[in-house]
């Protein structure tokens, strides 16, 4: 059974977003980390970088594979989780907590409203299982 917290928004690329005012915190879902297997490297952008919606902002590498990560919302990166440099395994162990990846100041603070709810994301996973 996938771990899908109620209070987050989800993308079909398996990112989660937590909205606080006009800042979105972004990471990858439990389903995504489980598909990747043991994560050994997370490549993230720098604070100040700008991204459009659905643009790739970095990559997560497991022993077997590399997967791009996309931002579901447009804006400017205000903070990056540099701790993942030293503890990439946090993506496997705590994908919704310690393994948050970026904080983005959204150009449109309502953009995340269009994303999937926890229930919708679960349906999406089940439909694509």
């Amino acid at each position: 059974m996938a771990n899908i917290p109620e209070n987050l928004r989800y993308s079909k690329d398996h990112e989660w977003v937590k909205v606080d005012g006009d800042v979105a915190t972004i990471g990858i879902t439990d389903h995504a980390q489980s598909q990747l297997g043991d994560v050994v490297y997370v490549d993230l952008p720098r604070a100040g970088d700008r991204f459009a919606s659905h643009e790739a902002f970095g990559s997560v590498e497991s022993v077997k594979a590399v997967s791009e990560i996309f931002t579901p919302v447009a804006g400017e990166v205000v903070e990056v989780n540099d701790a993942l440099n030293d503890t990439p395994e946090a993506v496997n162990n705590d994908s919704y907590g310690a393994a948050w990846m970026l904080k983005i100041k959204m150009d449109n603070p309502n953009e995340a409203d269009g994303m999937l709810s926890a229930e919708e994301y679960e349906e999406y996973l089940n439909a694509n299982a």
Binding site: G37, D38, V40, S62, V63, K64, N92
Partner: peptide, 9 residues
């Protein structure tokens, strides 16, 4: 099986 529950590492 590409890996089991414990994982590749």
């Amino acid at each position: 099986p590409v890996q089991y529950a414990a994982g590749v590492i």
